[in-house]
Design a protein around this nucleic acid. Structure first.
Length: 178
DNA sequence: TAGGCCATCTGGTCCT
DNA sequence: AGGACCAGATGGCCTA
């Protein structure tokens, strides 16, 4: 059911590999999202006396309709933001659309991959002897850059051998499904 | 047909 | 008081 996601070389904008969208899930245990907290909140709400809202039925109906409109508008805004996020993620095929949760997970991994690429770019600047290694050589050495594993998503950053204004430009991130 | 995804409604809570 | 935010419930649509 998960859509295939096609990735591109960020420099050439040509598609490279595809993977199906199973992304690593990082589980957080926070007060606001824990099952215990939500269960407590729900039971407290059930036990609580129903609040008497002021106003006639007609007034309450009007307020409810207004609140529904606001909520609809709010969700539309949220969806617009998700669409904007989808549009900047690399190389979605024309005929498929990431689901909401896939969009968020993909964005998370994409940011992570870019961050790793920058980090390794900095390492390369501080250690110029690594500069001329090809990605293949890097892979063979098992040293730099390491093959980054993030759950089921494997990220292999490739660094451009060119240097612009003293900054190495990362041009490629390929993803392979493990 | 079951399961996933989504939009919408709804009531509760928090904040201004 | 009213708005924003949140999570649960519900029903529709689609796909394997």
């Amino acid at each position: 059911m998960s859509p295939k996601v096609q990735c591109v070389d960020l420099r050439t904008h040509k598609s490279t590999t595809t993977f199906s969208g199973i992304f690593p899930i990082r589980r957080f245990k926070s007060k606001d999202s824990s099952c215990e907290y939500l269960a407590q909140k729900k039971s407290a709400a059930l036990e609580a006396q129903p609040k008497r809202r002021s106003g006639s039925n007609a007034q309450r109906g009007k307020r409810r309709t207004k609140a529904n409109d606001r909520e609809r508008h709010r969700m539309h805004n949220l969806n617009s933001a998700l669409d904007a996020l989808r549009s900047i993620l690399p190389a979605l095929p024309e005929d498929s659309k990431l689901t909401k949760i896939e969009t968020l997970r993909f964005a998370h991994n994409y940011i992570w991959a870019l961050t790793e690429t920058l980090r390794m770019s900095d390492q390369q600047i501080s250690n110029p002897t690594e500069h001329m290694r090809s990605p293949t050589e890097w892979d063979n050495t098992g040293q730099f850059p390491p093959k980054m594993n993030c759950g089921q998503l494997s990220v292999v950053p490739h660094l451009s051998p060119s240097c612009k204004h003293g900054v190495f430009i990362p041009y490629g991130i390929s993803y392979t499904c493990l």
